[in-house]
Design a protein around this nucleic acid. Sequence first.
DNA 1: AAATCGGGGGT
DNA 2: ACCCCAGATTT
Length: 430
Amino acid sequence: MKRQEDMEFFSRHLLEWYHRQKRDLPWRRSRDPYHIWVSEIMLQQTRVDTVIPYFNRFIGRFPTIESLAEAPEEEVLKCWEGLGYYSRARNLQHAARQVEDAYGGKVPDDREAVFGLKGVGPYTAGAILSIAFNRPEPAVDGNVMRVLSRFFLIEDDIAKAKTRVKMEGLAKELIPGGEASHFNQALMEHGALVCTPKSPRCLVCPVMERCAGRLAGRETTLPVKTKAKPPRPEARLAALVEGRGERAGRVLIRQRPSSGLLARMWELPHWPAPENDGAGGGAARPEDAAAMDRLRRSLAEAGISARPEEHFMAAEHTFSHIHWTLQVYRCREERLPLPMAAEARAPYAAQRTAVEAPAEASPPALFPAADSADPGAAPELFADEAGHAGERAEMRWIGREDMANYAFPNVFLKLLNAYFDQRDAAASGG
DNA sequence: AAATCGGGGGT
DNA sequence: ACCCCAGATTT
């Protein structure tokens, strides 16, 4: 069924098509393996059009592996802000340090070494080896599995790991001698531009006349893939705490734990919303007084003395496996602050040495402790999503201009911008 | 093998 | 509203 003749036809015509149709992409203007590497990490689960501006900014900021290895992690995360899957950014920097330490600052070109880099799996290893070094290694991603499953009418479930291994065997056989770089890119380019998931453009396909899937009328039902579970809903209450006194004009943000969801990103503080008995299943209503009281208590437990004043807005955010519904409340700091303690400051400088630094220096208190009737009631530990008691949650008061120094997930970026926009409009309007 | 990790664009 | 994307890592 996959006759040698069909395989040669496929490879030859795809390669010719690629030389005519390939897009002019930033990472194709360079032969620097570092550029190829960065692009491939960014392109994991992410579309080309999304990646382009991030790639250009990233290479501008970290032009060399050395510059990336030496940068503060916060700065790398800020450069990745909005791109998602933030462990990619942290793994990439970790791998840059691996390359500096173990390979003299040059991207290695053998399979074992490349595969050993943090964040580099089967696909990315093959992509780097083939695209940057023209080694005959397969680079099988979702595009490639779709294209191959159609042309060769392969009905294996592409969600299964075994299928990827099988596809890698086939993809490697298909690489024309000395053409690994162009051919692997041709395969993916074809999947992105012609052999698309829905409505494939078979009429302009260079290999349509021998496409087994098309000839069987199966081009829209292939590839076979078991569908993912829908994300579980989570209702949460978020606080936009407005500072008073010397902190007037600033709002309170906190840093997430160093592992798990959105690791080390900054956010508005938020906690699970009380379950709504009855219909609906958990989404707090904006004007719910009980929700506001719950939020006040959550704030207090985190050592934040603030009172929810009014509903600000709702926000939705979907991850791969969780769907957040956030009800955001504008809150008023209750105590008059002492002179600025935890003032907003750029987090960059201290970051790399912070790991080695002894834990003796506790961060400055966000609120004066003396006037509390119950001094022991302000816990210093931060409980994350899973309920683990984790590291101390770092908190800062920031104004709009400080947002440039902290990396936020998009949902909080939008909330903060909406808040500052609205507040400043109200101030200038009357 | 299944779950965990973002976010946006296409249909 | 659902699918999927130039996937890797952890459990």
